[in-house]
């Protein structure tokens, strides 16, 4: 089913907060265990799902799975999200020695394949997403964001090759998760926010197109931060949904974008979802829903991934308001 048809399939607003980390505290496990153990992760996702009752479920966001599967050193603290600590891709010959990892046996990719399987088993009728980082973001982890920025100008062939290789990794990993039970894919491409529209169109767009064209299931593209300058390019990627962060004026974006492209967003994950009271979250949610009332192609969500300390009652309030209108 196309994403737009699913969104229009029920009279009430669909709501899927980007919420994984807030569930961890409900189980008493550490962040690290939850990212390494699929059973624990699914238990925490399910507890959170039962508390907030959203229209879809997503795994816990982890931007290091792909790099780690490629042999890059990562740091995994007990209570924080992991991060890549090394950027080993220095030259075209380094690139030649890399192969696309097999998701069945590389790094923690199997954890997420199992999460997709388990979620399908326990929530067969719910929309189930899976994440993979985008080609520019992965290339940035492999090369380093500053060196990659220079390469765009000084060795565009190498930059392009690194991004295209990364796109193959993204594709393989998404396909494997979708094959294991996920029903839609979300490409997380945060680093692309630094690009000019021209650079996005030259380097990111072709790679993202290859991914969406080779995957039959719906793909959502998420880029953090202020992406107003990239909306045109994002529209052309073939993604069926765009997840837009809180700096973007969502109703203004909706006016510019096609009515069959689903927009997802965009309450501020910190300033609203963490810092405000339940009543204030309700108010902010109501005003966003009312501003978006003329646009059926909309899924209510947070602008970006919700931090671990987000009060569960605030996420619940967001879902409740969507249901009540």
């Amino acid at each position: 089913m196309k994403l737009i048809d699913w969104v229009k399939s029920s009279p009430s607003r669909k709501v899927i907060p980007l919420a994984g980390y807030p569930g961890i505290k409900l189980t008493g496990s550490s962040v690290r265990e939850t990212l390494e153990n699929p059973e624990l992760q699914v238990r925490s996702l399910k507890v959170l799902f039962d508390r907030i009752q959203p229209d879809g479920i997503l795994p816990i966001m982890d931007l290091t799975v792909e790099a780690q599967a490629l042999g890059v050193k990562i740091q995994m603290p007990d209570q924080e999200a992991p991060s890549v600590v090394d950027h080993p891709l220095k030259s075209p010959s380094d690139l030649q020695s890399l192969t696309v990892p097999d998701p069945i046996k590389s790094g923690r990719m199997p954890v997420y394949l199992r999460v997709a399987e388990l979620l399908k088993a326990i929530l067969p009728d719910v929309a189930r997403g899976c994440y993979a980082i985008g080609p520019f973001t992965l290339a940035g982890e492999m090369v380093g964001v500053e060196p990659l920025s220079f390469l765009l100008y000084e060795n565009p062939e190498f930059a392009r090759a690194a991004i295209e290789f990364s796109a193959q990794v993204t594709t393989a990993y998404l396909k494997a998760q979708l094959g294991s039970g996920a029903t839609f894919g979300v490409i997380l491409e945060p680093t692309a926010v630094i690009l000019s529209p021209k650079m996005f169109n030259d380097f990111c767009l072709p790679a993202l197109k290859i991914i969406t064209q080779s995957i039959p299931q719906p793909i959502v593209l998420h880029i953090c931060g202020d992406t107003e300058h990239l909306l045109e390019g994002m529209k052309n990627t073939g993604a069926q949904g765009l997840s837009l962060d809180s700096p973007v004026d969502l109703p203004a974006a909706a006016k510019k974008l096609p009515s069959d492209l689903v927009l997802i967003g965009n309450l501020h994950p910190v300033e609203v979802m963490v810092e405000l009271s339940q009543g204030e979250v309700r108010e902010k949610t109501r005003s966003l829903l009312s501003a978006m009332s003329g646009f059926p192609n909309f899924i209510l969500s947070s602008g970006c991934d919700l931090p671990p300390e987000t009060p569960i009652e605030n996420i619940h309030a967001l879902v409740q308001i969507a249901r009540s209108i």
Binding site: F150, I194, L195, H229
Partner: peptide, 14 residues
Amino acid sequence: HKEYFVPEVLLSAR
């Protein structure tokens, strides 16, 4: 004025 973005600023800063 959104003529330059991060990569261009990085190049200039270098």
